[in-house]
Design a protein around this nucleic acid. Structure first.
Lengths: 337, 337
DNA sequence: AATATATGCTTAAACGTTTAAATATAAAAA
DNA sequence: TTTTTATATTTAAACGTTTAAGCATATATT
């Protein structure tokens, strides 16, 4: 790899000190009253040598890398991919680059990723925290590192977070199905202590309670796993036990997709055999045999808010915000062809 | 943000020079013959102060950031998201972190992203080059920056690249449809000079030629756009003009998805009205009314190979590799429920 | 006793920037 | 003329590491 040209090379070529070059390269020639001729010469030399500033050196000196770290569960998951894209764009506009890492919903991996990003001196972090990472998040608080949690948070940690009104998400979905006349409404959720899930479960149970329907019978809390097989086994057990299910709500995108694979494989018809409401939407929802209903998260807005909040923090704000955005129930009609 | 603890803080606390601390922190205490007692004291102090190395300072000194830059068209696109994930994992194993940027298939944006990553001194780059970025890629060659192109390349630039045998991809798809008895086989592709597309088109036309079928009539080369509306307009014009199409091949994932939206909206039946072969697969393909056939790219293998090639380059290899991997035609049966 | 070797540690430069402070010169004001 | 002010530039330290080179001291070898 070619030796990169530095500010020193330009200084030598023009015959001035590095300070002047630095001033000019940063557009501070007026403020620092650099001679007009000198400015021109420096500009020309920079051009000729094809100078590119070394952001690493700059970062070290300034104590800021203009980089933000993004910890997602899995960048390959379209929901997180979409989120990452919005973060990227917003960060870019604000002059930041994003470094990312996938935690795989695993606390050990999460710790690794977090350490890596911190060692790389990211100025701030956006974290989708996995189960069992309270300590890690508390560590960020202790370090006074600017960061905001997204999608989930911990009740025991007072920090910035932006989440969906998860309760409302499943609540409106359940109510909708109840009003439609269903009584045997199942919810498939992950067995976890993470609030986004417990809230989604609560939204469901409360809606059922209110309607005077048993709210425990059709609740499937299954263990998280990366393997579809594991999901399938748990789900089959549940489904076989309750062959009278009239409607199914899925508590997140992954569960929705997995459920659809199962449903498809087992020749269960939507609608007909069961009604279905998923989470987050996406291409598979649109292109399924019939368009599928789902709980929509305002992901664009959330992404924008997250970055805005973080940049405020990085600019010195000390306000702690807990932002909760509203979901929207998107009901799709049966296709007539 | 708390002042980070540095090697100097540890040195001061223990009462030794920073050099010793550095040696110990890098596990070179044997080689550099640091006293046993001192090692212990340094370790303890590092623990107590919760020392985390500053990778930025390290990078500046060593001239290597242990970072690789990834330029994709759009991280929100599942194909690229999946690829990014593989790259991330492989890079992580090799001790690298990945910084990414989306080029949006736009040369201006690509230049920005590339510059940003270069200024951040990435040790190497993985680039999915957009149209009109030959100059940028040539720039990398001139700088002797280790990089490898993925998915596409430029005939005029001799550099490392890993691509699919694109010709073969559409060729086997077309042959399959011909053998099935179709003669009016359409290909929807992007109008671009990028080889991955031109090769996919060539694979299609050659297969048709060989079968003695007119190979221009049913070829739709449409302009790339981020808007579905634009796609729809071009596609509709094409479809209306050729209402006798028997089968449709889509030249990449985005086109496949867009086509499916159109097909669905216009009540065209797969199979029945037309046969369909898409590109890259994914959840929408599996969950469509009937499972859809597609040309599969060995993306895992490609991702692994890309990172392997790049790490070799970063470790000083000067070999230029052009790797081409085989696609696989995945034919799906009609669902019987 | 003189020399060589081993052990343990320090010094200081370097990486490429930024920037406060100092310096030098010219022009304006006293 | 001397002093002040404005203009143009340099100096040098700092950011947190790594590492070659040097310096003591103790022990082993002649």
């Amino acid at each position: 790899m070619e030796k990169k040209v530095s500010i020193t090379d330009i200084a030598r070529k023009v015959g001035v000190s590095v300070a002047l070059v630095s001033y000019v390269m940063n557009g501070r020639e007026k403020e620092k009253r650099v001679g007009k001729e000198t400015v021109k010469k420096i500009r020309r030399a920079a051009e000729e040598l094809n100078y590119q500033p070394n952001q690493i050196a700059r970062s070290l000196r300034l104590g800021s890398t203009k980089t933000i770290g993004l910890v997602v569960a899995d960048i390959a998951n379209p929901f997180f991919g979409q989120f990452a894209r919005i973060v990227e764009d917003e960060a870019f506009k604000a002059g930041y680059t994003v470094v990312f890492g996938s935690s795989d919903e695993d606390d050990i991996k999460s710790a690794f990723v977090l350490d890596t990003l911190l060692n790389r001196q990211v100025d701030g972090l956006i974290v989708i925290p996995s189960e069992g990472t309270v300590k890690q998040i508390n560590g960020l608080v202790r370090k006074k590192k600017p960061f905001v949690l997204f999608d989930r948070y911990f009740k025991e940690v007072n920090c910035n977070h932006i989440i969906l009104d998860n309760y409302k998400g499943t609540n409106i979905a359940t109510r909708y199905l109840v009003e439609k006349g269903h009584r045997k409404i199942a919810l498939v959720a992950y067995k976890t202590s993470l609030v986004h899930m417990t809230e989604r479960i609560r939204g469901y149970t409360e809606a059922l309670k209110e309607a005077g329907i048993d709210h425990t019978k059709y609740l499937a809390e299954i263990k998280f796993s990366h393997s579809y097989k594991d999901f399938e086994n748990s789900f089959r057990a549940f489904f076989n036990k309750h062959s009278d299910i009239e409607a199914l709500i899925c508590a997140n995108n992954g569960l929705s997709i997995n459920s659809l694979y199962y449903i498809r494989q087992n020749c269960i018809r939507i609608p007909g055999d069961i009604d279905f409401i998923g989470f987050d939407g996406g291409e598979p929802f649109d292109l399924y045999s019939t368009p599928l209903s789902f709980v929509r998260q305002p992901i664009e807005e959330m992404g924008r808010e997250v970055v805005k909040l973080l940049t405020d923090l990085m600019n010195g704000s000390t306000k702690v915000s807990h932002i909760m955005l509203d979901p929207e129930l998107v009901i799709r009609e049966i296709r007539n062809c």
